[in-house]
Write a protein that binds this DNA or RNA. Structure first.
Length: 736
DNA sequence: AGCACGCCGACT
DNA sequence: GTCGGCGTGCTC
């Protein structure tokens, strides 16, 4: 080995490839840890991240290649970022390089040098100020509009200009050619165009106690469960905490929110109340260039507050001192493909490693979280009174549908309640988790039911479009007129969906203005927000909708919530179904009577005495959770035991079964405390034409589970069937 | 995951 | 004779 070869720098590079470990490359130029590089990988080029620098390599020198390019002048990634992703890659059994690269904005995964798009703001200079609008030809409407706006409002950002006209660039160019315009680069993500507000609402005792408790222990790792019922003012607590934590320093805070259109609401409140702190958001609606820019602002410490969804839990934040996970029970925190991480859990790990406090907020905490709060591992802060003092909790009542004569899925008490609201000019919401017209198309003669060919599911009748549609794979076909099984023409849409309910209501209450809100009616862009503002404007009497309506907006004039058809979830084989239903019903119940008017919740069910409804009636989460936890303990389910699942699918079940059986046999041959079951088929045996199977692992500790999986996954990857089927490890699975 | 290499069928 | 099918194997 030559002198120079011995001392040549070896870079350990993480690459976006489904292989374990990192790859060694030579570099003649100095490269820092955390820098992006472009390397030759087989016959192609790959972007990688330098995660370590060494003097030598295990790899044969002949095999070692040199890097092609490196991006200095880009901020480097810090070691906290690497180590957090290394931890996750190990814990969730996912290749390190892929985990690392997928946590970067897409722009940074491309081989081009990544420049965040520069954005500018514009204003009239002296020449522009003294210019006369008549100097612009009257036909140049856009130019005139921009000119007037700049004169009246001063500086305008690109976003504000694009609201004036889609062709603002052309208009602005003309004004600039006149020499009237000055410009300056801005960070669009940071600009708080909203009006700041100094109004600090007074905290009630519970809120004040929560803020005080958390701040008392702000210098170390401490998870807090902020258990606050809907309307108890959790957001105000967050604001006070952020004010206190960020004041007089350069520190940063990360706020995680569920993957829904809730981000803008929280963003707006934070921007008005915390205008002094640069704030960026990171969510899927951002364009790639905006995402990169906001991410850079976080990474460089410019942004002090980051509001983001699941993926943003990995955002590099050099001065991170505080974390909030809002609606911590929300299922969208769990990634359901690629690396199946749970953002709330990752946030907890991150907080622990940084030794900082983390606040988990929810009205209906995940049982895992509740258990930790009960056992004292998390601090428990309870807020059971509504912050808006006069507003009362809704009255919750059940209607036993087996004892009344139903009218098209609606019980007489519910119809009566709807009529009352209509007379009073108040709004109602009917909650039904079934979109479409009817969930099945049934042959009355031979009981044939229209099935989906690609999934083990029934096709849903969408009467208006004349289609049968599978809600799992999206398959569509014309409604059949004749039973393919017996030839009978007596086919009937059976059961009730949102469309049918809408139709029924229109017949029953012809004077009511009805609005249906589900995935079908809100497919169009901005449709949902338009509908919500129609509700706020009082243009709607009855809202019919799916779980989309459970979250977010509150409607002050809404005083009745009707819940239809929830019984299937009560006895679901998925042990988390009841917990989820409870959370959902608590949320819809929270929609009712939020202002000065008391609300009523009417639940149609065959099981009015079910403990879930009793808990809902008393709004006592704790009692219900205690019951569920007891069941979980007996059944040896989380949080008492830990689970992992191998999910596999292929065109045929045979190879899936053989692969999973191999996994089970291999595990049983190991000396382990973990228990492995036999391969089984999930509820949805076939999905999108794929035959599915799964294998469950169970252990008393995470550790035991980890030991098994660490040994097992490399063997599975080496198995001959590994490339023939699709499979993934899901640690702490949420769905079965 | 890509991408190349490799060894067998129906086409200008 | 070749274009192309996708099985197998490698990537520092």
């Amino acid at each position: 080995m030559t002198e120079s070869a011995q001392h040549a720098t070896i870079l350990k590079v993480a690459l976006d490839v489904p292989l374990d470990g990192v790859f060694d490359y030579r570099s003649d130029v100095p490269v820092q840890v955390g820098q992006r590089v472009v390397v030759p990988f087989g016959p192609r080029k790959q972007v990688g991240v330098v995660v370590d620098i060494a003097d030598n390599s295990e790899i044969a020198p002949a095999k070692l290649k040199s890097i092609l390019q490196h991006f200095d002048h880009e901020p480097v990634l810090d070691s906290e970022f690497f180590s957090l992703l290394k931890f996750c890659a190990d814990y969730y059994q996912y290749p390190y390089g892929q985990a690392l690269l997928s946590a970067l904005p897409a722009r940074l995964r491309q081989t081009e040098p990544a420049q965040a798009r520069q954005q500018f703001c514009y204003w009239l200079n002296e020449a522009g100020q003294s210019a006369d609008i008549e100097a612009i030809p009257a036909r140049q409407m856009v130019q005139r509009r921009i000119f007037t706006a700049l004169r009246e409002r001063g500086r305008l950002s690109e976003a504000e200009l694009s609201e004036l006209s889609p062709s603002w660039r052309k208009g602005l160019l003309a004004l600039r050619e006149q020499g009237w315009i000055d410009e300056e680069q801005i960070y669009a993500g940071l600009s708080a165009t909203l009006h700041a507000s100094n109004v600090q609402p007074e905290l009630n005792d519970e809120q004040a106690h929560a803020v005080q408790s958390i701040l008392q222990q702000r210098e170390r790792f401490k998870p807090w469960l902020l258990h606050g019922i809907t309307g108890s003012g959790k957001t105000e607590v967050y604001i006070r905490l952020l004010q206190a934590v960020l004041e007089g320093n350069q520190d940063q805070a990360l706020v995680l929110v569920p993957e829904i259109n809730l981000t803008p609401q929280l963003e707006a409140r934070f921007r008005t109340r915390l205008p002094q702190y640069p704030l960026v958001t990171l969510h899927s609606n951002l364009g790639e260039s905006e995402r990169l820019q906001n991410w850079r602002l976080a990474q460089t410490g410019v942004a002090r507050i980051v509001i983001g969804t699941r993926l943003s839990v990995f955002t590099p934040l050099p001065r991170l001192k505080f974390m909030i996970v809002d609606e911590e029970h929300d299922t969208s925190y769990k990634q359901q493909d690629s690396m199946r991480y749970h953002a709330r859990d990752v946030a907890l790990v991150r907080a622990q490693r940084r030794n900082i406090p983390i606040v988990l907020g929810s009205a209906t905490p995940a049982l895992e979280t509740w258990h930790n709060a009960q056992s004292g591992r998390y601090g428990l802060l309870s807020m059971q009174q509504r912050a808006v003092s006069q507003s009362q909790l809704p009255q919750v009542n059940c209607v036993d549908v087996s004892r009344v004569q139903m009218q098209e899925g609606l019980s007489p008490p519910l119809i009566k309640a709807l009529k009352t609201r209509l007379q009073r000019g108040e709004q109602s919401l009917l909650f039904i988790n079934r979109r479409g017209y009817a969930p099945v198309l049934l042959c009355n003669a031979c009981h044939w039911i229209a099935p989906c060919m690609r999934c083990s599911s029934r096709l849903v009748v969408h009467l208006r479009q004349g289609f049968l549609r599978c809600h799992h794979c999206g398959h569509e076909q014309k409604i059949v007129r004749q039973c393919p099984s017996c030839g009978n023409a007596d086919l009937h849409p059976t059961g009730h969906g949102t469309q049918r309910l809408e139709e029924t209501l229109a017949k029953l209450l012809p004077e009511a203005r009805i609005l249906r809100v589900d995935r079908d009616s809100t497919r169009r862009k901005h449709a949902l927000s338009e509908m919500l503002s129609a509700v706020h404007a009082g243009e709607v009497d009855i809202l019919v909708g799916t779980q989309m309506l459970a979250k977010g907006h509150d409607f002050p004039n809404l005083t009745l919530v009707g819940v239809l058809d929830t019984d299937s979830a009560l006895f679901s084989p998925d042990f988390r179904a009841a917990e989820r239903l409870f959370a959902q019903l608590m949320q819809v119940a929270g929609r009712a009577g939020r202002a000065d008017k008391p609300g009523e919740v009417l639940i149609q069910t065959t099981f009015p005495e079910h403990q879930l409804f009793n808990a809902l009636r008393s709004q006592e989460y704790g009692t219900y959770a205690a019951g569920l936890l007891q069941e979980r303990e007996i059944a040896q389910f989380p949080p008492y035991e830990f689970l992992a699942l191998i999910k596999a699918e292929a065109n045929e079940y045979g190879p899936v079964q053989r692969f999973l059986q191999f996994a089970a046999d291999t595990t049983r041959a190991m000396a382990t405390d973990a228990l492995v079951y036999d391969p089984i088929r999930p509820q949805m045996e076939r999905l999108k034409g794929m035959e599915r199977g799964q294998l469950l692992f169970q252990a008393t500790t995470r550790q035991a589970l980890q030991i098994v999986l660490r040994q097992l996954t490399p063997q599975l990857r080496a198995h001959p069937l590994s490339n023939k089927i699709r499979w993934a490890v899901d640690v702490d699975p949420q769905e079965f």
